[in-house]
Structure formats: structure tokens, C-alpha cells
Simulated assay, not measured.
Amino acid sequence: MTQPDLLLIRYRDAGLRIATAESCTAGLLSARITEVAGSSKIFDRGFVTYTNRSKQELLGVAEATLGAHGAVSEPVAREMAEGALARSEADVAIAITGIAGPGGSEVKPEGRVCFGLATRGAETRTETQDFGALGRENVRRAAVDHAMSLLDAAAGTP
């Protein structure tokens, strides 16, 4: 698990800034990144877009994408990350959208979380993790931990 202080050092040394676009984690990733002193050097801004409408209004996620794939999908995670990057001064933007629980469906079970990682000058990457029905709090923590790992890996790529 990537610690916020290590992320701070890597991004600060690389001269990179981060933006977040969060749905099911509702700002937990932003809070994790900024829990260390000096994080203002690497953290530009965070968007909490819990509803489909907020994803559209704040990040520019297309209604057609939401309609075709649903909020918990890699296409929506991609548009969230790209929207956060376009609407910030960050070099790297990460998006999280998923089903923390309880609930879910056979098609989109509890614990499914989609991630988007957009970097300036590079192709946006997406992936889906199925953390399982760990309970709401544990799914959200697992999603934040995974996002921190993705950010850590991206520190050398832009």
C-alpha cells in the first residue's frame, strides 16, 4: 500500500500535480492524499460526483455514456478522469466509480470498482477491480488503497 508521504515525495520530486474524481469513495482518496503536510505541492483539486448529474455537470461525462454503460463502468471512469484533468491544473487525474454496497446485481456486484487514470500527453487507462462483498467501508478503503497504488505507478509515466 502506498503511503501519502511517499506519494508526496515522488510527485513533488517529479514536479507533478494530482486531481481526483470520486464517486463511491466520496472524497476519501482526496483526504488520504492530503493527510500529510506539504500535500498542497502535489494536490490540485478533487471532484466528488456522487450522482450521474454531477458527473455530467462537473466532469463532462456524456449522458450517452452513462445511458449505455451505467455509472459503474470503465467508459464512465475514463470520462471522469479525462474531465478532471481538463478542468484542473493537474498532470495526473484519477477517477473512481463503483458499488461499495450493500447491494449490487449479478451484472455489477457489490465490491466492483472502476478506475480511470488520465495523464497529460498519454492515453487514459482504465481498469476494473472486484473487491467482493467486503462491506461498504472495506470496499471504499480497498478502492482508495488501489487508487494510491495506481497514482504511485503513474508518478514516472507522464
Score class of each variant (00 low, 15 high):
A14K: 12
V72K: 02
R32E: 13
M148K: 03
G70T: 12
D91S: 13
S39F: 11
L8Y: 03
I96V: 11
A62D: 14
Q3N: 11
M148D: 07
T126L: 01
V92C: 13
R140H: 04
S40V: 06
G60E: 07
P75C: 07
G60F: 00
D152K: 07
V61G: 15
T34N: 06
G27N: 08
I42P: 00
A100C: 02
Q3W: 04
Q56W: 02
T97Q: 03
I33C: 02
A133S: 09
P158H: 14
V113K: 02
D13C: 15
N138R: 14
T128G: 04
A71T: 11
A77I: 01
L29C: 14
T119C: 15
T119P: 04
E106M: 05
G111D: 01
A95P: 09
F131K: 03
Q56T: 03
K108D: 01
A93Y: 14
R53H: 14
A90P: 12
L117T: 12
L151W: 11
E35I: 04
I18E: 10
I96A: 05
A143S: 10
L28C: 09
G101A: 09
D13E: 15
R12L: 10
T49S: 01
A19N: 06
T128W: 03
A147I: 11
G111R: 01
T20Y: 05
G27P: 09
I96S: 05
V72D: 00
A64H: 05
R87S: 10
G98I: 05
L66S: 08
A122C: 01
V139G: 03
I99M: 11
R125P: 13
G104C: 06
L134S: 06
S73A: 06
L151D: 15
L8H: 06
E106G: 14
Y11H: 09
S149C: 13
Q129M: 10
Q3V: 12
A14T: 02
T49D: 00
L6G: 08
A90V: 10
L66D: 07
N52R: 11
L85D: 13
M148G: 09
R32V: 12
V61D: 07
G70I: 04
T157Y: 10
D13W: 09
V113N: 01
C24E: 15
G111S: 01
I42A: 01
Q129T: 02
R12A: 09
K55Q: 04
L85M: 15
I33D: 10
G101H: 06
R112E: 00
R12H: 08
E57L: 09
A37V: 12
E74A: 14
E63Q: 13
V113E: 00
E22W: 10
A90R: 12
Y50H: 13
R87D: 11
A31L: 03
L29F: 12
V92D: 12
L8R: 09
S105F: 00
L85N: 11
R136F: 06
T20S: 12
I18F: 08
A86Q: 15
R112F: 00
Q129F: 04
F131Q: 03
